[in-house]
Amino acid sequence: MKRKFDVIQSTCVPLPLENIDTDQIIPARFLKTTTNELKFFGDNLFCDWRRNPDGSPNESFVLNNPLYGGEILVAGKNFGSGSSREHAAWAIAGYGFRVVISSFFADIHKNNELNNFVLPVEVSPEFLQSIFDEVAKDPKTELRIDLPAQKVTILSNGLCESFKINGYKKYCLMNGMDDIDYLLSQKAKIEQWESSENNKLCWK
């Protein structure tokens, strides 16, 4: 799902839990599809927290609370740990989130988000807490994510912080380009490496 990314201003969904693993984001039983059905994955985002064992909505879970909504998910530290399943990023994108804010992301999941045009925004623990506090006061609090300027702002209190992203990935996101497009253009360099001594060392 390539789409160009610029500035996003939206309310958010707060999920102030730490160590949210990808088994919670999308349980393994939903991984049996052979096509990329974003809607299906989105419908089952956080399935076992969102629904009671009998399938009815768990009213106490934030996704079922009509006060909260928007294109931004805000989660506690170490978001996306565990399994490498990209289905987790598909579920987040499929649900309609375009940004995930946390104070710390697990490596593989962070890449998976980027490869699906979902922007992981890593902020300081203090800034994260400030978002949770503001949203607790007013669920309609808006956040502004400015990718070109690499800044995130809490509009209710004006608090602002910069975030990091490497120049290449930023360019990809802003131009709707993905890594595969890039790699397919690099065939000559790949063949050059393959004819080098380094390639002979691996006894493939």
């Binding site: 399943r85 990209e86 490869n115």
Partner: peptide, 8 residues
């Protein structure tokens, strides 16, 4: 790695 990376 993720599935996009598998494709890479």
């Amino acid at each position: 790695i993720g599935t996009s990376e598998v494709e890479m």
